[in-house]
C-alpha cells in the first residue's frame, strides 16, 4: 500500500493538496485496494460529522437566545448612537418615513400571522406582536451584511446558488417559493440566503445591479389580509426599502434605488412573485 500519512489523506479529502499531489493519490487509490479502503473510512468520517450537524443550522434559533441577542443588540445600538447618521437608525428611527404602518395595524396583522403559523409551529404572544418589525429589522441587517461584504470583497455570501434557490427554499420553508428573474431590470441573481426571523425561516434573494450595487428581495411566509406597499426611505442615504404582503407571503425589496424607481419595480414584479402565477 502506498504510504501516506493521515494528514496528507485528510488534506486530499479536504481539497487542500496541490493538484499534482492530489492526482498522485487519486492514481494510487485507483490501484490500491487497501489505500482505497483507508481513504473511504476517512471520507465516511467527514460525511458523518457533516451530516450529524447539517440540520442544526436550519433549526429555529431558540426564542430565549433570540430575545437575549435582540436585547444585547439594542443595548449595543444605543451605545453606538452617539455619533452621526448611520444607514439604519433602528426601528422607528427619525430618518425613516413609515407609510401606513401603525401599532394597531401591526397587532391585527400579527394575530393573523399567528393563526397561520399555529399549524406549523408554536409562536407565543410576544413574538406575534413583534414579528413584522423583527422581520424588517432582519431584512435590513442581512442586507447590511450582504452589501458590506459585496462592496469590500465583491463576494456574494449566499447559502444556495441562484439556479437551485427555488427548490432549496421551497424545502426549507415548506411551501412554494417563486424566484423572480429580474435581469430585464438589470439585476443579476447571485443566490439566496436563509434568514431566521423570530425563530422562523425566511428567504433573502441577493442580486447585483448593473452599476454593481447590491439589491435584495426578501420573502417570508405570512398571513392575514393583503397589504399595500409600505415605503421606508433613508432620507440621508441612497437605500430604499419597500415591503408589502399578498396571498400569505410578505415581500421586501431593498437596494440603492430611488423611492419612485423602487416603487415602480415593485408594481411591475409583484405578480411574478406569487408562486404558481
Amino acid at each position: 500500500m502506498a504510504r501516506y500519512s493521515d494528514e496528507t489523506l485528510g488534506a486530499y479529502l479536504d481539497g487542500e493538496l496541490p493538484a499534482e499531489d492530489a492526482r498522485a493519490i487519486a492514481r494510487a487509490e485507483a490501484s490500491d485496494a487497501q489505500l482505497r479502503a483507508r481513504i473511504e473510512a476517512l471520507r465516511a468520517v467527514s460525511h458523518a460529522v457533516h451530516q450529524s450537524f447539517a440540520a442544526v443550522e436550519r433549526e429555529p434559533v431558540p426564542e430565549r437566545l433570540q430575545v437575549a441577542f435582540d436585547r444585547l443588540a439594542r443595548r449595543a445600538n444605543r451605545r453606538s448612537r452617539s455619533w452621526p447618521a448611520a444607514l439604519w437608525p433602528g426601528p422607528r428611527g427619525r430618518h425613516w418615513v413609515y407609510g401606513v404602518a401603525g401599532a394597531a395595524a401591526a397587532v391585527v396583522i400579527a394575530l393573523g400571522l399567528g393563526a397561520f403559523l399555529s399549524g406549523v409551529v408554536r409562536v407565543n404572544d410576544v413574538s406575534l406582536e413583534t414579528y413584522e418589525d423583527a422581520w424588517i429589522e432582519q431584512v435590513k441587517r442581512s442586507y447590511d451584511v450582504y452589501a458590506g461584504i459585496y462592496r469590500s470583497e465583491a463576494r456574494a455570501m449566499v447559502d444556495v446558488d441562484g439556479k437551485d434557490a427555488g427548490v432549496w427554499f421551497a424545502d426549507k420553508l415548506n411551501r412554494p417559493i417563486a424566484v423572480p428573474d429580474l435581469s430585464t431590470h438589470g439585476l443579476t441573481l447571485k443566490g439566496g440566503r436563509l434568514v431566521i426571523v423570530a425563530g422562523q425561516p425566511s428567504a433573502q434573494f441577493l442580486y447585483v445591479a448593473e452599476d454593481g450595487s447590491p439589491f435584495a428581495l426578501s420573502v417570508v411566509p405570512s398571513a392575514g389580509q393583503d397589504r399595500t406597499v409600505v415605503a421606508r426611505e433613508d432620507k440621508e442615504g441612497a437605500v430604499t426599502l419597500l415591503h408589502w404582503r399578498v396571498k400569505n407571503y410578505g415581500y421586501a425589496l431593498i437596494g440603492n434605488f430611488a423611492p419612485e424607481a423602487m416603487r415602480s419595480l415593485a408594481d411591475e414584479i409583484a405578480p411574478q412573485l406569487i408562486p404558481g402565477v
Binding site: 441577542f69 449595543a76 441587517r141 451584511v145
Partner: peptide, 11 residues
C-alpha cells in the same frame, strides 16, 4: 457591521 453580521450568523 458586526451586529448585522452576528445576527445573520447566529444559526
Amino acid at each position: 457591521f458586526v451586529r448585522a453580521g452576528m445576527a445573520a450568523q447566529l444559526p
